[in-house]
C-alpha cells in the first residue's frame, strides 16, 4: 500500500493532536475546569486515525463515550471541543452535551454516546440512508469490546448484513470495560469471530500499528462503498489510563501489563517508523510535537474565553419549532 510521505506525517500529526488534546482534558477535569468527566482515548489513537484517514470528508462516523479521538480524526476542531468540555456556548453542542455527547453533524460526526452500543443501530440507520439516497457514502461505527455484549450491537450487525448496508463496525478492544477485564465479560477471545455469526468478514488487527489499521480499514471501506456490505474490524489496543480520567482508584492494573502496552504506544511506533524511513528527522518530529502542543494550548485559551450559554438555553432545542 502506497502512502505518501506527506500523508504519513499527517497521520502522525493527527495522533499527536488526539494525545495532547486528551492529556490536557484529563488535567483540566482534575482541576474541574472541564465539567463532568472524560474518558480518555490515550493509547488508542492509531485506530481513530487509521480508520478516519480511509474515509472521505462526506462519510459518517458514530462514536462512543471515549470519543474525543474519533472527533479529531474526523476533522473535529479542538477549540470547539474544549469549549464544549468547558460547557461554553461555542462548544459543539452549545454546552448542553459535554464530552459524552460531542457531535458535529456537518462533519459527518453523528455523535459520541453515553449509552454503550447505542451507536451501532444509529450507524445502521445512517448507512441505510446512504443506500436510500443512492449516494456512495460509508459509515464507520466505533465501539468498545464491552459494547459487543449488548443486544443492540448484535441486532445492528445482523440487519446491516442483511441489508448489505455500507457500514464498517470498528471494535476498539482495549482489554477492559470499565473495571472488568474483557476476558471475564466476553465469550470469545477474538471479537472478530462474532462476525461469522452474521456472515460478514471479521478481521483482527494490531490496533497499535497505524499502517495495519489503515490498510484493513481501506479494504473494508472499499468493500462497503462498492456495495459489498459491512465488515467487523477488531483492533487490539489498550487503555493507557483508567476508565474515567487518569486514575479513578477502583482497580489497580498490573504494572507489567501497562508497561508492555506503553512500549507499544502507537505514536511512538509510528514516529520511529517514519524516522527509520527517513520521512522525518527526530528534530522534525520534536518540532511537530511542539507545534501540536502549541495548538492545544491555544485551543484551551480560546475555549476559556468563550461565553457561557444563555440561561434560557435550558428551554431551547427540546423541539424543532415550525419555520417562521
Amino acid at each position: 500500500m502506497e502512502i505518501t510521505n506527506e500523508h504519513m506525517v499527517r497521520m502522525l500529526t493527527q495522533m499527536l493532536r488526539i494525545r495532547e488534546f486528551d492529556e490536557r482534558a484529563a488535567r483540566l477535569m482534575e482541576q474541574a475546569r472541564v465539567k463532568g468527566s472524560v474518558h480518555l482515548y490515550c493509547g488508542e489513537e492509531a485506530i481513530g486515525v487509521g480508520v478516519c484517514e480511509s474515509l472521505r470528508a462526506d462519510d459518517y462516523i458514530t462514536s462512543t463515550h471515549r470519543g474525543h479521538g474519533h472527533l479529531i480524526a474526523k476533522g473535529g476542531d479542538p477549540k470547539r471541543m474544549y469549549a464544549e468540555l468547558f460547557a461554553k456556548a461555542s462548544g459543539y453542542n452549545g454546552g448542553k452535551g459535554g464530552s459524552m455527547h460531542l457531535a458535529a453533524l456537518d462533519l459527518g460526526i453523528i455523535g459520541a454516546n453515553g449509552i454503550v452500543a447505542a451507536g451501532a443501530p444509529i450507524a445502521l440507520g445512517v448507512a441505510f440512508a446512504s443506500q436510500y439516497q443512492d449516494n456512495d457514502r460509508v459509515t464507520v461505527c466505533f465501539f468498545g469490546d464491552g459494547a459487543t455484549n449488548e443486544g443492540a450491537f448484535h441486532e445492528a450487525v445482523n440487519m446491516a448484513a442483511i441489508l448489505k448496508a455500507p457500514v464498517i463496525f470498528v471494535c476498539e478492544n482495549n482489554g477492559y470495560g470499565e473495571w472488568s477485564p474483557t476476558a471475564t465479560q466476553t465469550s470469545v477471545a477474538d471479537i472478530a469471530d462474532r462476525a461469522a455469526a452474521y456472515g460478514i468478514p471479521g478481521v483482527v488487527i494490531d490496533g497499535m500499528d497505524l499502517a495495519a489499521v489503515y490498510e484493513a480499514a481501506g479494504e473494508a471501506v472499499a468493500r462497503a462503498r462498492s456495495g459489498g456490505g459491512p465488515s467487523l474490524l477488531e483492533c487490539k489496543t489498550y487503555r493507557f489510563y483508567d476508565h474515567v480520567g487518569r486514575d479513578f482508584g477502583v482497580l489497580q492494573r498490573d504494572p507489567e501489563e501497562i508497561a508492555y502496552w506503553r512500549a507499544r504506544d502507537p505514536i511512538l511506533l509510528w514516529r520511529n517508523r517514519l524516522e527509520e524511513l527517513g520521512v522525518l528527522s527526530s528534530t522534525d518530529a520534536d518540532a511537530l510535537h511542539a507545534s501540536v502542543v502549541g495548538e492545544m494550548e491555544a485551543a484551551i485559551a480560546w475555549a476559556d474565553a468563550q461565553p457561557d450559554p444563555h440561561p434560557d438555553a435550558l428551554f431551547t432545542d427540546v423541539y424543532t419549532e415550525p419555520a417562521a
Binding site: 454546552g95 440561561p311 438555553a313 435550558l314
Partner: peptide, 16 residues
C-alpha cells in the same frame, strides 16, 4: 424539573 432533557453546563443544570 422543567420539560427538557438534563443539560450538561453547570449553569443550565442548576437552573434545571
Amino acid at each position: 424539573a422543567p420539560f427538557t432533557p438534563v443539560p450538561f453546563a453547570p449553569l443550565l443544570e442548576d437552573r434545571y
